[in-house]
Design a protein around this nucleic acid. Sequence first.
RNA 1: GGCCCUCUGGCGAAACGGUAAACGCGCUCGACUCAAAAUCGAGUGGGGCAACCCCCCGUCCCGGUUCGAGUCCGGGGAGGGCCACCA
Length: 820
Amino acid sequence: MNERYEPQTIEARWQKRWEEAGVFKAGRRPQAEPRYVLEMFPYPSGAMHMGHARVYTIGDALARFLRMRGHDVLHPIGYDALGLPAENAAIKDGRHPAERTAENIVSFRADMKRLGFSFDWEREIATCDPSYYRWNQWFFLKMLEKGIVYRRQGKANWCTGCMTVIANEQVVDDTCERCNSKVVEKVIPEWAFRITAYADRLLEGLDGLTTWPERITTMQRNWIGKSIGAEVDFALQGGSEKIKVFTTRVDTIHGCTYVVLAPEHPLTAAVTRPAQRAEVEAFVARMKKTEAAERTGEGAPKEGVFTGAHAVNPFTGEAVPVWIANFVLAEYGTGAVMSVPAHDQRDFEFARKYRLPIRTVIQPAGGGRTPPGDQLEAATTEDGVTEGSGPFSGLPSAQARERMSAHAAAGGFGGATVRWHLRDWGFSRQRYWGTPIPIVYCDDHGAVPVPYDQLPVKLPPQAIITGTGEPPLAKVPEFVNTACPTCGKPARRETETMDTFVDSSWYYARYLSPKDETRPFDPALARRWLPVDVYVGGPEHAVMHLLYFRFWHRVMHELGLTAEPEPCQRLVTQGIVNGPDGRKMSKRWNNVVAPGYMVDKFGADTVRLFMLFAAPPEKDIDWSDEQVDGLFRFLTRVWRLFHARQASFAAREGALAQASGPFPELRRRTHRTIKKVTEGMQDDLKFNTGIAALMELMNELQGLEPRDEGGHAAVREALLAMATLLAPFAPHCAEELWHEVMGPAGRDRLVAEEPWPSFDAALTVADTVTVAVQVNGKLRGEVQVPAAAAEAEVRAAAEADEKVQGYLSGKALKKVVYVK
RNA sequence: GGCCCUCUGGCGAAACGGUAAACGCGCUCGACUCAAAAUCGAGUGGGGCAACCCCCCGUCCCGGUUCGAGUCCGGGGAGGGCCACCA
């Protein structure tokens, strides 16, 4: 062994050995319990950054640990390679996205290999590969058959400069991030997934995800947004139409003094009276031109116009005016609201502005009075007790809601209902770099699905990117012109592509049989490996990817492809790696630290240790050159320690019992370290405290020089433990050290495959312990007692302690003895 | 506005309701060196004290539960995240 720790000279060698030995291949231990460890696959735009280094280090440490624990571990990797960022980068530098993406993948793969991640590289996938996206198309067809995919009119962000639809992420303050032109909303036909049909199941499923971070499940709950309320029909006075409103506060309906429609509401034109027509039309036209955020954002002033119409409140028989206002959203609820200004702040502000009546119908349940509407300063929005509500007066809000909903149902003018915040997922993109949607438009047969045996519909290599607003694929005649699958006559292909989130919704299943040409994946393997045991990724995916992922898995479950309805048991959301200055790493701040550069400088093991030691996985961390130096120093010390203790390498196991002097204490430290590291891995992925324990063991070993065989044996035990415990974190260094201690006996073995060490529980407790003594809750002294001492004995020792006695003038009331 | 998270030395952080600050960084002092770097050793929350004996104070603030609270409960503050005129 080289006397100096030079990671650059050893790391590539071990990486090669692992690969040759195939130790990271999944499925090698059919008898063992399987574990699927997954990290969110990277979007290979540009080079790998520190955030990637962190996710994969976390997952890798866990995968390596589980392998050493005897599990059959699936730990795959791939690339989320289709999508807008790649296409935009391509537009910017005039290169084909495929070419650029391929290069980026090469660079990512190299960086990941250099960090020593234990991926099963034979399962590598890239979503831009037709052998992958053909299954997106396959799922599309299946979901079309089941009615989960449908065509609708949808709203899109239309950039007036680029003349194309762009993604939400690209819209910054109503302007296009690329050309700074105005972005407007445009209604165009699009394909959508009926994810709303799964809203209830996606919501209920969250209850079972007990090991997901609560903030993630909470965000999903809010996003799905179940709200229980009632629908009530307000009949138009002097007409046959009915305005259906949705409310969560039907208990306040007797306080309704007007009704408001969204500008886009289908009844808007029909209800407007001739006298108001000009004003209403002008208002609607203006709203149409205004960007959604500006119109309905919180800062936007409430604006509306009167239609001249009146509608009848079915509970009171009273006719109330019908208005149109900017803040009512056509797509939520029924696109119409009943306004109760006394008990809804938004309605209150609107009523004030337009001098509409305000009527109090709820009184606080706990006493006190709400003043009459004309004296209110603000709406009172809490539940209370109804008043002035006819037969429903005097009821608590909750009860009033129930009875009034029932009353509406009985009268045939409404009833209890549930509304969701979740919208269907529009996945059409007028873009090139995505999965082509397998549909052919025929003059005679309309939209015809491409037959399964004609998949994949391949993306044509000719990328003609944008300009006119038509999808780029529309400009490739070889692609567009085809024959109708039904009648064979000339027909045109769908030229839209799928949202990238489709690719990432099921990739984890493709890893099971990545080369399968007959189906997306093998259901038999899914039964063995799914659901994913641990999924590591950033919390920014809480409501997009992680919801689509759950939705897609349910669909696959219904298709009989998976046994369980949920895709993933446990989710770990890792924090951000910030720059050394504590700000987000960015070119703007000139604080970007490249993983590759750091690996060159310190070696992969030091970078990995930094990622794991800086803080628990879910916390944000700041890159710190000083901390990195410290971790490199740690590995150097460990290295030198092994070098200095070579004399102990040959010690016999059997000599352990003779360990005397400070060596029984060393053995205790060794076993406590094993315990600490093991528990840290199993419980909360507390890598940082595990590594700290290894540092303590090293500190202790540094001060010990064995003189007899028992001492040498104890040192050898500690060194072997250290090498194996270090293996998930700093695997290259661990291999090297382990082989040194083992000598010829370990020549053909790899620590990556060694069994994880076990600890002797009896050795983790000391013979004598220090017990802190508290009097009246204050620390007043400490006593040394045998670890096996009985309570009475400890108590006697404590009471005998002179310091403690000084505080015991009376008698102790209670004593609680604790063992350290 | 709603929902959620966080708050502990100079810094990153530890701590089944039981000696707060393990471990690392930084800093100070010492050893080695002509010197420096590297390395090794010692110290390092604040205050009192001649004293590294000991005492007091210390986990954002206020209150509570408890023999005992960084940890549990209630209220408040600051910082951060997500959603947001969602009826």
